[in-house]
Deep mutational scan, measured.
Amino acid sequence: KRPMNAFMVWSKIERRKIMEQSPDMHNAEISKRLGKRWKMLKDSEKIPFIREAERLRLKHMADYPDYK
């Protein structure tokens, strides 16, 4: 399994928030909203998620050195 990228790290957190607020919303609609919101974020707002994704990538490389 591949490590999460910055969007996936961010969307995992945000998806929970949306599901708590709107439990009946369909997954496809949540995904569309998340995509739009991610694109609207400033680069500076994405930095913590980019850093976390990089940390996960490095950990994945250490844990699975033969992964292609």
Score class of each variant (00 low, 15 high):
32 K>F: 07
13 I>K: 02
9 V>Q: 00
43 D>L: 11
39 K>W: 00
52 E>I: 08
46 K>Y: 00
49 F>N: 01
38 W>F: 01
30 I>H: 02
52 E>N: 01
40 M>I: 04
63 D>N: 14
54 E>H: 03
62 A>S: 14
17 K>R: 08
56 L>Y: 06
14 E>V: 00
36 K>D: 15
46 K>C: 01
57 R>Y: 08
8 M>A: 14
2 R>A: 09
52 E>Q: 00
30 I>A: 05
37 R>F: 02
62 A>Q: 14
48 P>Y: 05
41 L>G: 03
33 R>H: 12
42 K>G: 09
59 K>I: 11
40 M>L: 13
46 K>H: 02
37 R>G: 13
4 M>P: 11
2 R>G: 13
50 I>D: 06
54 E>S: 03
32 K>A: 12
15 R>L: 05
51 R>Y: 08
12 K>V: 13
6 A>N: 00
26 H>I: 08
4 M>A: 08
46 K>A: 01
25 M>S: 05
35 G>P: 08
12 K>M: 12
17 K>H: 05
48 P>D: 03
46 K>M: 01
30 I>T: 02
43 D>T: 09
61 M>I: 13
27 N>K: 09
46 K>S: 00
40 M>H: 10
40 M>G: 10
44 S>A: 12
12 K>P: 02
52 E>D: 05
24 D>L: 05
7 F>Y: 09
39 K>F: 05
25 M>I: 08
61 M>F: 07
28 A>Q: 08
38 W>S: 04
47 I>L: 14
48 P>F: 07
37 R>Y: 04
60 H>C: 12
23 P>T: 04
11 S>R: 02
57 R>D: 10
8 M>F: 10
59 K>P: 06
51 R>N: 10
32 K>H: 12
27 N>H: 14
4 M>S: 07
52 E>F: 04
39 K>H: 05
39 K>S: 10
16 R>W: 00
30 I>E: 04
16 R>G: 11
13 I>N: 06
24 D>G: 11
32 K>L: 09
61 M>C: 14
26 H>G: 15
68 K>T: 10
67 Y>Q: 15
34 L>D: 03
66 D>C: 08
18 I>K: 01
60 H>I: 09
37 R>P: 00
21 Q>Y: 04
37 R>N: 12
44 S>K: 05
39 K>C: 05
37 R>K: 12
35 G>V: 15
22 S>P: 01
57 R>V: 06
42 K>D: 08
9 V>P: 00
61 M>T: 13
17 K>Q: 09
16 R>S: 10
45 E>R: 00
48 P>T: 02
68 K>N: 14
42 K>Q: 06
32 K>E: 15
35 G>T: 15
51 R>C: 07
10 W>G: 01
22 S>E: 10
20 E>M: 02
47 I>M: 14
60 H>S: 12
60 H>N: 13
46 K>E: 02
13 I>W: 03
22 S>V: 05
58 L>A: 14
10 W>Y: 06
39 K>G: 11
30 I>V: 13
3 P>Q: 14
46 K>D: 02
25 M>V: 08
55 R>K: 09
33 R>T: 15
51 R>G: 04
39 K>D: 12
52 E>T: 06
55 R>F: 07
2 R>W: 00
41 L>M: 15
8 M>Y: 11
43 D>M: 11
67 Y>W: 14
55 R>T: 13
44 S>R: 08
4 M>K: 04
23 P>V: 04
27 N>Y: 09
52 E>H: 04
40 M>E: 15
21 Q>S: 09
36 K>S: 13
53 A>T: 03
9 V>C: 05
48 P>L: 04
45 E>C: 04
66 D>P: 08
32 K>V: 11
68 K>Y: 15
51 R>V: 11
5 N>I: 04
61 M>G: 13
56 L>P: 00
50 I>M: 13
12 K>R: 11
39 K>E: 11
24 D>H: 08
36 K>M: 12
56 L>H: 09
11 S>Q: 14
56 L>C: 04
50 I>V: 11
47 I>Y: 09
34 L>Y: 01
44 S>Y: 12
7 F>K: 01
53 A>M: 07
37 R>E: 15
18 I>Q: 01
28 A>M: 05
10 W>T: 04
25 M>F: 04
55 R>I: 08
30 I>Y: 04
49 F>V: 03
45 E>G: 00
1 K>H: 12
10 W>A: 04
14 E>N: 07
48 P>Q: 08
23 P>Q: 02
14 E>Q: 08
9 V>F: 03
44 S>N: 07
56 L>E: 09
55 R>D: 10
11 S>L: 01
24 D>Q: 10
21 Q>A: 10
11 S>G: 07
42 K>H: 08
27 N>D: 15
62 A>P: 13
7 F>C: 04
58 L>S: 12
15 R>I: 08
21 Q>C: 07
25 M>R: 04
49 F>H: 02
10 W>M: 07
28 A>W: 06
26 H>W: 06
16 R>L: 12
43 D>P: 13
35 G>W: 09
8 M>W: 05
26 H>Y: 06
27 N>F: 10
58 L>G: 11
59 K>C: 11
46 K>G: 03
40 M>A: 14
23 P>A: 06
43 D>C: 05
53 A>S: 05
29 E>V: 03
59 K>D: 12
14 E>Y: 03
44 S>V: 10
20 E>H: 07
20 E>K: 04
35 G>H: 15
20 E>G: 04
29 E>S: 03
1 K>L: 10
42 K>T: 14
6 A>L: 03
65 P>S: 15
19 M>C: 07
53 A>W: 00
12 K>A: 14
27 N>C: 11
